[in-house]
Each structure stands twice: as C-alpha cells, then as structure tokens.
Amino acid sequence: MDKLSIVIPCYNEEESIPLFFKAVEQIVIKINDLETEYWFVNDGSSDRTLHELHVLHDQYPEKVHFISFSRNFGKEAALYAGLQAANGDYVAVMDVDLQDPPEFLPKMYKLIKTDDYDCIGTRRVDRKGESKFKSFLSNQFYNIINKISQTNIISGARDYRMMTRQMVNAVLSLKEYDRFSKGIFSWVGFKTKYLEYHNVERVAGETDWSTWKLFKYAMDGIADFSQVPLSISVWLGTFSFIISIIGIIFVIIRRIVEPSSSVFGWASLVCLILLIGGLQLLCIGIVGKYIGRIYIQSKHRPIYIIKEKQ
C-alpha cells in the first residue's frame, strides 16, 4: 500500500487547523489503497496553534504528527522541515487555510500513479478577492523573473503539489539557507503537470502575507535564480563611465575652440553628480545583496530549530 505524506506549514492558524483536517480527511479516506499521514509544522505561532495540534495528535496519534519551531523561521523553513520529516512514497504540500482545494488530491494521486508524472502542481488562473495592486505586482514578478532567469516559473503556480519520493529527495538535496521553493521545484526538473483552478478565499483567519512581505519574497526569488541584476549594475557603470568621458572631451574641445569661455552650469553639474552617485549606490546595493546571501550561507546556520516534535 502506498503512503501519502501531507505537509502543512502553519503560522497563527488555530481556527483553520480543525477545519482543514476535517475537509482533507473526508477526501483522502475515499482513495483506495492509500495510507495517509499529516505533518503540521508550527512556525513559531503566537496564538493557540500548538494547542490545536496537540489536540489533533492526541485524537489521531498514528496519523497526525507535528513539528514546532523555537521561533518563527518563515514558511520556507517550515516547508523544508515538513519535507524532511515526511516519509511517504508521495508527498503533498498544502496551505492550512483551504485555499488549496483538497478535492484535487484524488486526481493528483491518479495522475502521478498512472501517467508517469513526477509532480502534479496547481496554478491559479485568477486572483479574485485580492487587491488589484497586489495582483498587478504578482503578475509583473512572474513576467520579470521568467525573462531574466533560466529557470521557468509558471505564472500563478502554488506550493500546493504532490511529488514522488525521488523529486522530494532532489529538493531536499539543495541545502541553501535562503530558499525560494517555487523556483526550487522548477529548477530540480522532473516531469510536471499543472491543474488550474480559480482563486479560493481563506476558510478562516487572516493572511500574514502583506504586500511588503510579498515584495521582499519576490526580491529573494530574483536574487536566488538570476544574476541579471549584477549585469545591470555593470552596464549602468559602463554607461555612466562612457558619458563622463564624452563630457570631458566636450569640455576640453570647447576650451580649445573658445579659450575665453568660462565654466558654467553648476546646477546641472550637481544633478550629474547626484545621478552618478545614485547609480553607484544602486550598483553597490545590488552587489551587496548577493554578497549578503553568500555571508549568511557561509555561517552554516540551521534553516530551523525544533522545540517539539510528535
């Protein structure tokens, strides 16, 4: 009998956990010849998430397991911890807020078993219910990263997916500290099919993903899977250097042709200095972003620290 491990990162989701388990269990229990285990990962929640996980584990000790971090390490760390703990033949990753339709699980399992796929992923075809500004930023992120990165990331792709043990092991073999799972899932390759669905509202609670957090997450993704920003800084530096050489030649020729002319235009000179100074700071900042990631990786700190595991 095959075994399916379901990995569920949780952060302040005390209301969603019982609803999630009930909804998913009603679906997976109907799948023949499939044993299921749940791995909830409490990412340093400040509410009663851990209490709800204890209650669920006490009710289903053989089926429901959880990991609780010593503090909030972020969703990527929770995902990684869950994948490490899961020991099923197949592993599914889901959000606890039920925005990932559990009714897809039987179809995922059938496709991955019979159609020679290594991964069945999902993607949203719309963002109904979200602000237009957040939707715009999200669409632009996918447009940009797919133009500047060799790793293709499907627009609207979710973390919600079912993977074979072979693909999970490949994902776990990447030990990088700053993780961007959507990119990692694509980078490791393997044959993947995407199921499409319309956006679903949260079943309970409020999302912790503000526009600013999503923006920072997007910048991390770009830094992880593209070196184009470094190339941009080189081209900006080269362009400003060429312009400055042209300006110097122009001043020298003008001085030769019109010896009596005086230097003028201090306001424009100040603007040019500010422009070049700004470009330098921008380029230094881009380089610093990459160096900072190297520095963090070189410390070899653990991606997460477990306080409790059952």
Rank of each mutant, 00 (worst) to 15 (best):
V7M: 09
R123K: 15
N169L: 13
S226F: 10
Y177E: 10
G156R: 07
V28M: 03
K299I: 01
K134T: 09
L98W: 12
G156C: 03
D97F: 06
D47N: 12
F73G: 03
I246H: 01
Y11T: 01
S46M: 05
F133W: 11
F69V: 08
W39S: 02
D220W: 03
S135I: 08
D208T: 11
N143K: 15
L79S: 04
M108H: 06
L230D: 02
I29T: 13
I243D: 11
V203K: 07
F185W: 13
I154H: 02
M108T: 02
K3Y: 04
V55F: 03
S233I: 03
S138Q: 14
N32K: 15
T207V: 01
I222Q: 05
W235P: 00
Y290N: 06
E176S: 07
F21S: 02
A78K: 10
E206K: 15
I222T: 07
T164C: 02
L195R: 05
Q166W: 03
L34G: 02
S233N: 02
V251A: 14
Y142F: 15
A204E: 02
G121M: 05
N32H: 12
V7W: 10
T122Q: 06
R48V: 01
H198S: 13
G44Q: 04
G88P: 06
S231W: 08
F250I: 12
Q99V: 14
L214T: 09
I67G: 02
F136I: 00
F73R: 03
E52F: 09
E62N: 15
K3A: 05
Q140A: 03
I303G: 00
V287P: 01
A23G: 01
W209V: 08
I294W: 06
G44T: 08
S261E: 10
I184K: 07
E130D: 07
D220N: 14
S181N: 10
K30F: 01
E76D: 11
V55N: 09
P18L: 07
T211L: 13
F141G: 03
D178S: 11
Y177T: 09
S244N: 10
W39I: 15
K147F: 08
V96W: 04
W212Q: 13
F21H: 11
L282R: 01
E14V: 05
I148P: 09
K128T: 14
G205E: 03
F40Q: 05
E14M: 10
R71T: 13
T211F: 05
H54E: 11
I273S: 12
Y80S: 06
I17L: 09
M94F: 15
Y197W: 13
I303V: 15
I67A: 07
K309T: 09
Y90K: 13
G285Y: 12
F250A: 14
Y38H: 03
L279W: 04
L137E: 06
R161K: 15
P18A: 07
F141L: 11
I184N: 10
L236H: 05
E14L: 04
K132C: 04
E258Y: 15
F20L: 10
F20I: 04
K63T: 15
L137C: 14
D100F: 11
W209Q: 09
K309G: 00
V91M: 06
L79K: 08
Y60I: 06
I243T: 08
Y80W: 12
Y109R: 10
N152W: 08
D97I: 03
R254K: 12
